[in-house]
Every structure is written in structure tokens, then in C-alpha cells.
Design a binder for these strands. Structure first.
Length: 446
RNA sequence: GUGGUUGUAGCUCAGCUGGUUAGAGCGCUAGUUUGUGGCACUAGAGGUCGCCGGUUCGAACCCGGUCAUCCACCCCA
């Protein structure tokens, strides 16, 4: 029995996760990111107010030490919040902002860090949605320009190319959304406007308009109806937005940023990922202020497998104004789910060692054990069958454990100073001298 | 937080309109084979039918409640 939305990880799955994390770490470091960790627990006041209303609701909050739930249960949410002192981290970005502020004297800005740790959300579990999951984040804190966005897109592109996972990266800009809201006549209802628009992929334009209506948003549809037609090819789409938003002050920063990004991406275009300018992309996390990204896997029904964006003043909330940042996140579980469904994990990832030493006991057992220990000392992964048993049992064990090669020592081998090795996959069996280590492991690694 | 789905063996499920000892496949254990796995055959182990209560002579089946699950919405990795 486990709490809902949590799960155990079995050996093969664990190896696959390690493969994903190692690959990501390698790429992160290639781009100059340095690894850190932060505690699972943060002060509630550190996290509170950073994720919007929904995020606040989904945050795991801890009762103060010694407090009885009954004492607090009668209180309203805000009253209760005043008693909460600690919470489980909800993402890695806000703790990173806190980290930068706390360690500002030890860091040189711009500071690039990566971090792969669990986060917790009190969501209702669903397909691909857990209450405990792992995020792999890369963020830059400090000064910089659109090259950073370009770099992050490139990072996404490389990573998913390595995994051979077809993806689409959607890009938008908060200022573009604000400009659109203003153009539509509701600059003061920006959040409702964006949240409704975000559903476009699912419900289409009629659905979006219905959603807006339900939120009592008065939309000047005539002024934004041009959005519903036309292509989404990056440069052409951008041109269209420049044209229609030329009069909107709020949109100018977004248009300029995206223009710059467009130029950068022309120089270093993504090789693998599909890139789309998607003005309907909103993203709920409150702290984003500039470019925003979201990645979805193509060919699988899953939520987004990554997301991120630029936040101008996250550290300001912790007493260090003027330091912005930009970053992205990879959702480890969802990427693993996608790769599994599409059979994209390399076959070479296996939980079991390649070789099992079988033996018929007595002197043969001792000889096999000695050889096993010598091989292990030289770094070869070898399993030793731990008791005297029928050969048949030992083979069955290897077969079921997914061990492909079986080394055998019995009376014959003892007499001749040899060792038989069988490839259980092909059925081919060969005899080696006991000291022919190179030849033996050439065969085993074939 | 809202709506719906499903809870029977380790796993996937069957069980007709309530009827007495609850089944199958896969898996598991042992053997056929005391130096050769996958296949086949034989035998065997394993279930408070999610839980509580109700209706009934009798409940896996009907009713109520409860817990869990999965899916959709919301939101997101």
C-alpha cells in the first residue's frame, strides 16, 4: 500500500531513469550548467504566492510541530496559511531563486545551475500525473539576453534528439499575451483571457469564445479574429503578430524579443524538434514574465513533458531585486512513459548483469567463486549462483533473471582447467581456458 | 475541487435472471530430465469475492454506505 499518486520503481525502470538523468546531466554540463540540490522542505512563506491560486491549493503544506489538525480544521484557508510554517517544494524554480539570494556572495552571476529532484503536488492522480514526480531543471540567474532562450531551445532539441523522441516545442511570450488581451479590450482581465485562450488546442476557437463568455469576459472578437486563421510557421506567424499588434504598447517587448529569437534560431536552427510560435500558450505559473515554453511528445497521449520560461524578478521577492532568470524543466516520469510507449529505450539497458557463474558444487564451486571474484575485481559485472543446485535450476534462474550468458564449471572443467560459457539467447556454447579472461569477455560482450 | 468507471488468485479477467464444493489463462512450486534453460506433459500450492451494514431460507451477484482505483474536467511535468 502506498499513498495515492506515488509509486515504487523496479530495477529496469530505475536503470532507465538513471540513463535519462545521466544523458540530461551530460548535456546540461555541456552547456555550462552546474549541479546543485536543495531541501525537499521549504519555508511556506518562500513558496506561498508564487504559483497562483491553483498552485497554492495543490501545495503540500505541513502542520506545525505539535499542532493538532482539529485545532486548525475550523479555520479558513488563509487563516490556516498563517499557521503553516513549512511545505514540500512544488517545483525547482522558486527554491532556486531562494538559493540564489541566500548564496549571492558565493555565486558569480550569471549563474547556471541544473537540478534533478522530486517535487510534490497534491493533485488528483491520473494518467501520467503523479503527486510525487521528478523534475530536471536547467536555469540561468542573472543578466543575459535572448541567446539564453535560444540556448535553452537548443538544449531541448539536443536532449530529445538523443532520446529519439519526436517533440514539438511551443513558444510564446507573456507580453504578447498581454498585448492580445489589450487588443481584445480586456487588459485588466489578462489571466482569465490567457487561461481561456490556453484551451485552444483542446476545444478550438468556438470553445475558447465560450470559455471567455463563461468568465464574463467581454471580448472584442472582431479585433482578434485574425488569430483564428493562418499558418503557424514561425517567421510568417511572427510577421502577422507584428502587423496586428503594432499599436499595442504591451506587446512591444514580446515582439522585439521574439524577433531577436527568430534571428538567433535562423543561425542555429533546431535539428530535431518541431518549433511553433503559439500565442495560445499561457502556462499558469505566476512568475513568468517573458518567453514561455512548453514541450509535448508527438505520437503519445500525455500532458506536456517539459516547460519553462523567463521570470524577471523572482529573487526580488526574497530581497534581491534586479536579478532575473530563465529556465526549463524536463518531466522525468512523463519522458520515461513516452519512451516506453514508443519503445525508444535502448535494449542495452538491463537491470541484470550479463554473466552468471554456474557450478556443480564442491571444488567446482570454489573454483567458480574464485574466478568470479577475480573478474569482479577487474570491474566485470558477474553474478555467482549462491548454492549447489541442478544445472537446470541454475539455467532457469539465469533465463528468468534476464542474464544472457552462463559460465559453467563442473568436474570436466576442473580436470581440464577450462570453463564453459553458453549464450542462452543463441544456444551457442564455447569452452575457454580459465585464465583466458580477454577471450571470455569478448564472447560475453558480443 | 467536479463528473464518471471499476474493485473476484501474484497478474489479466470469467462467473447466465441471487442457489449450495468460486473458475480460466498466465505466473509460481515440484517432477518427467542427479551436466544444459526457453517448449511439452503431469501433479500441486494459492482467494476474508475491497470493507461495513441491510434485504433474503440463501448474496461474488440486489440495496445503502465507505474506502480504493482508473478516466475525464480543472491544472500541470
Amino acid at each position: 500500500m502506498l499513498p495515492k499518486g506515488t509509486r515504487d520503481i523496479l530495477p529496469l525502470e530505475k536503470k532507465r531513469r538513471v540513463y535519462l538523468q545521466n544523458t540530461l546531466a551530460e548535456i546540461f554540463e555541456c552547456f555550462g550548467y552546474q549541479p546543485i540540490e536543495t531541501p525537499a522542505l521549504e519555508l511556506f512563506k518562500t513558496l506561498s504566492g508564487k504559483y497562483g491560486e491553483e498552485g497554492e491549493r495543490l501545495m503540500f503544506k505541513l502542520l506545525p510541530r505539535g499542532a493538532k489538525f482539529e485545532q486548525l480544521s475550523g479555520l479558513s484557508a488563509t487563516e490556516m496559511g498563517q499557521h503553516i510554517e513549512e511545505a514540500l517544494r512544488y517545483d525547482l524554480t522558486v527554491p532556486f531563486a531562494r538559493f540564489v539570494v541566500d548564496h549571492r556572495s558565493e555565486l558569480t552571476l550569471p549563474f547556471k545551475r541544473y537540478q534533478m529532484q522530486q517535487v510534490w503536488r497534491a493533485d488528483r492522480p491520473q494518467k501520467g500525473r503523479f503527486r510525487e514526480f521528478t523534475q530536471c531543471d536547467a536555469d540561468v540567474a542573472g543578466p543575459g539576453g535572448m541567446v539564453q532562450e535560444a540556448e535553452l531551445i537548443q538544449l531541448y532539441d539536443w536532449a530529445f534528439e538523443r532520446f529519439a523522441l519526436p517533440v514539438e516545442i511551443r513558444v510564446n511570450h507573456r507580453s504578447l499575451l498581454q498585448g492580445l488581451a489589450a487588443l481584445a479590450g480586456c487588459p485588466d482581465r489578462f489571466v482569465d483571457f490567457a487561461v481561456g485562450l490556453d484551451k485552444l488546442d483542446k476545444v478550438g476557437w468556438d470553445g475558447v469564445r465560450a470559455d471567455w463568455a463563461q468568465r464574463q469576459l467581454f471580448i472584442d472578437w472582431e479585433r482578434i479574429s485574425w488569430m483564428s486563421l493562418g499558418d503557424t510557421a514561425w517567421s510568417a506567424a511572427l510577421e502577422r503578430y507584428k502587423q496586428h499588434l503594432s499599436e499595442e504598447a504591451l506587446a512591444q517587448r514580446g515582439l522585439a524579443d521574439l524577433h531577436e529569437l527568430d534571428a538567433l534560431l535562423h543561425a542555429v536552427p533546431p535539428k530535431h524538434a518541431q518549433l511553433r510560435l503559439d500565442p495560445s500558450l499561457a502556462r499558469g505559473l505566476d512568475y513568468y514574465t517573458g518567453c514561455i515554453f512548453e514541450v509535448s511528445a508527438l505520437g503519445v497521449e500525455l500532458g506536456s513533458i517539459g516547460g519553462g520560461g523567463r521570470y524577471d524578478n523572482l529573487t526580488g521577492l526574497f530581497g534581491l531585486p534586479g536579478v532575473g532568470g530563465v529556465g526549463i524543466s524536463f518531466g522525468l516520469e512523463r519522458i520515461a512513459l513516452a519512451l516506453e510507449q514508443l519503445h525508444l529505450f535502448p535494449d542495452s539497458i538491463s537491470a541484470a548483469p550479463p554473466l552468471l557463474m554456474a557450478h556443480l558444487g564442491g571444488e567446482a564451486g570454489l573454483r567458480a567463486f574464485t574466478l568470479t571474484s577475480q573478474w569482479r575485481r577487474s570491474g566485470r559485472a558477474v553474478e555467482f549462483y549462491p548454492k549447489e543446485d541442478k544445472l537446470r535450476k541454475q539455467m532457469e534462474y539465469a533465463d528468468k533473471s534476464g542474464i544472457r550468458w552462463l559460465g559453467m564449471i563442473g568436474l570436466d572443467e576442473i580436470q581440464n582447467n577450462t570453463l564453459s560459457i553458453k549464450d542462452l539467447k543463441t544456444g551457442i556454447q564455447k569452452v575457454f581456458g580459465q585464465l583466458e579472461t580477454e577471450a571470455i569477455f569478448d564472447f560475453v560482450n558480443a
